[in-house]
Design a binder for these strands. Sequence first.
DNA 1: ACGCAATGCAGGTAGTGAAA
DNA 2: TTTCACTACCTGCATTGCGT
Length: 544
Amino acid sequence: DCVLGNPPWERIKLQEEEFFATRHRDVAEARNKAERSQRIGWLAEGMLARHLFPELEHPAQECAAEQRLYAEFITARRTAEAMSLFAHVKGEDDGRYPLTGVGDVNTYALFAETFAQLMAPLGRAGFIVPTGIATDDSTKAFFAHITQNARLVSLYDIENREAVFPAVHRSYKFCLLTLGQAAQAEFVCFATRVEQLADPRRRFRLTPEEFRRLNPNTLTCPVFRSARDAELTKKLYRTAPVLIDDNWPNGNPWGIRFMAMLHMSNDSHLFRAAPGADSLPLYEAKMIHQFDHRWATYNPDGNSRDVTLAEHRDPDFTVTPRYWVDATEVAQRLADKGWTRGWLMGWRDICRATDERTVIAAVVPKVGTGDTLLLMFPDPKHGARVACLLADQCSLVHDYAARQKVGGTHLKYHVKKQLPNLPPDRYTAADLAFIVPRVLELTYTVFDLKAWAQDLGFDGSPYAFDPDRRALLRAELDAYYARLYGLTRDELRYILDPSDVMGDDYPSETFRVLQKNEMREFGEYRTQRLVLAAWDQLVGGALA
DNA sequence: ACGCAATGCAGGTAGTGAAA
DNA sequence: TTTCACTACCTGCATTGCGT
């Protein structure tokens, strides 16, 4: 009737480095897998020390000790492999873990599934596991199973920031998961102390249908700081579908294909330290920001720095990358995806919900890109509407939605697919007349994006780079998108600053760091003032 | 008691590399 | 493509320690 537990949290797979860290430094500190494998091989022969230090004297017992360690390693590895094989047996083969025996198996997931199996139909189970059980890809089958069968009673998520568990890393998240019978599940997320779990402002509920609307592809758990965040996000998803819904043939209205062009470690043999006649710069994620592909550049000393205003104002200035790649490598990869335009649209993979901004997307010239600058190729038939695709991603409203969905430090495809995006047919001629010229002025400040400007229907020279003007244009776009997403003025105020609407101690935050940075730089929360002013002008018909 | 440098700490922004 | 009871580095800010 009642199952309780704090199961172990660890990967089953043997970690070679971890295993040898306390047993043999020379193996643990090998440069990479290949070197480590060779050293383990020498260990088997009892020859490791002799190969590494041939100039030293080696006592006879050293050889036997090395072979004993090797035998210990083999036993540990076999045990781990056998456990992993056992966990991976499929459900139809009478496997013990049909839902969680996937990928790199973690013991907490196996225990969770066992708990779910052990429960009586009207019983309850409560246990402490990493919150990843609800949000990670590898456990999504299990989580979808319990939510879609109305078996989830509650999930209380706690960040270990205040060291509830002193031995666990402060950035780790775990949850109290309760299974039973319930038509809707109750949640508290981002708690840092146990008493916060009782705060009604933090509690929200989700039905099985709402899971399907918010995360149609993965059926994983969205995490909200407050009840108001849950309601507002549900509203955004009722207005705009997700970028790509894998369940429907027409679930990809922009016709988008994704690509990670060059992996920073796997493809590093292609990288050159200096430009050649037929090479292209390799852009990394940190070199771009919203509407700006000249955010950071490399110095000759190998360090990166922000691009200065004077450089930004120069329409011929382009950033210096750390590496260059052959143009043929770039052309080959783009040809594989059938991409023929003279520009690329991408976004930063590395991001956090608590940074100044979360979704950082930009258009860059046809260059090489590292794997943390992920690319999207919309169907070219949409013409100048692609400007709206970029503007949507850079809008505050979209960013707000993303902040409810980004758990860790990555914005990978599966998260990106499930963010709300207005589809191309939602934009009227009037919308395009408002959005496209502003996007053009914000992005086309350099000659190297001429192809992009032409695709937006513009054949002139780049626009001047003026920070004040850019802030104004961006505020107008933010206000416009707030209207396209069907927000009220109070909802927009809430997104800009929850305490402005809900009072100071409301347990949520949206753009706290943006506000802090602007207070420091401008002495005011400039975005808030400009966006609300733009909103009032729009509503009053004074802005077109 | 004061000013400055050294140190500590948290948060921000990246990153590796192996393996399924 | 994703994950890491991840790791590393940098920066800004606060605290501590030291010499005057």
